[in-house]
Amino acid sequence: MSDPILSLGNVEAFYGDARALHGVSFDLHPGEMLALIGSNGAGKTTLLKTICGLISRYGGDIVFDQQNLSGTSASAIASAGIALVPEGRRLFPSLSVEENLVIGGHVGRTGPWNLVSIYELFPILKERRHQPSTSLSGGQQQMVAIGRALMANPKLLLLDELSLGLAPVIIKDIYALLPRIVGQGLSAILVEQDVTRALGFADRFICLQEGRVALEGAPGSFTREEISQAYFGA
C-alpha cells in the first residue's frame, strides 16, 4: 500500500482548558474516503478543525503529505492542499457566488478544478454567479461551499455535515455527485449525522466517542449493534 496522505498520531486538542480529543490516531490513504461518525460532542468537528489548523492548542502529530503540520498556520495548511467544507457552509456573505468560488482558488494550486469545471458540476451556480451568496437556497449554498473547497484543488477534502438543514431530496442530489469529486487521488473525510448514508459512501469509517476512537474499520466488517454501541457508548 502507498504512503498515507494523512497520518494522525495520538492527537489531543483543547478548547481552553477542556480537552476535546484524547489521543486519536489513524491513517488515510490517497483516494480513500473515510467516514467519521459519532454522536454530538464526540469531537468530529474538532478533529476536522484541528487538521485544518484552526485549533492552535493540540498535542500529538499530524503528518500530511510527508510534512508535519505542527506549528503550521491554517493558511499554510490550506496552501499545502487541505480544504474544508465547513459545518453550516459559512459562505462569505458579502461576496457573490463567483467571488466565493474564486477566493477558494486563492491558494494557487493547479489541478482539475477551476470555474469552468465547477460550473459543469453545478450548472445552477453559473446562472446565479453574480448574485450575493446569501440569496441562494440552502442546497445551492452547499454547492458553493463544495465548489469553493474544490477550487483549491486539494489533496484532502474535509466535508463537515453536508446534509445539515437541507431537504432529503437535495441531500440525495449532492451525495450523488460525490463519486465525481472524490477518488482519482483526492482523499476525503466525511462527517455525517446519517450513519447509514455515510457508511454507504465510505471505504472505511472511524467512530468517535467522547474524543476517542471507539471503533474503526471497513463498513461491512461490523454488525449494526457493534456500530451502535460504539456510537452511543455502553
Binding site: 459559512r90 462569505f92 456573505p93 458579502s94 477558494g104 491558494v107 483549491a152
Partner: peptide, 14 residues
C-alpha cells in the same frame, strides 16, 4: 471582505 465576514474560514482560503 472575506476576512471581515469570517476570519476563521478566510484562513482556509490561504
Amino acid at each position: 471582505r472575506a476576512t471581515s465576514d469570517d476570519g476563521e474560514i478566510a484562513q482556509l482560503m490561504g
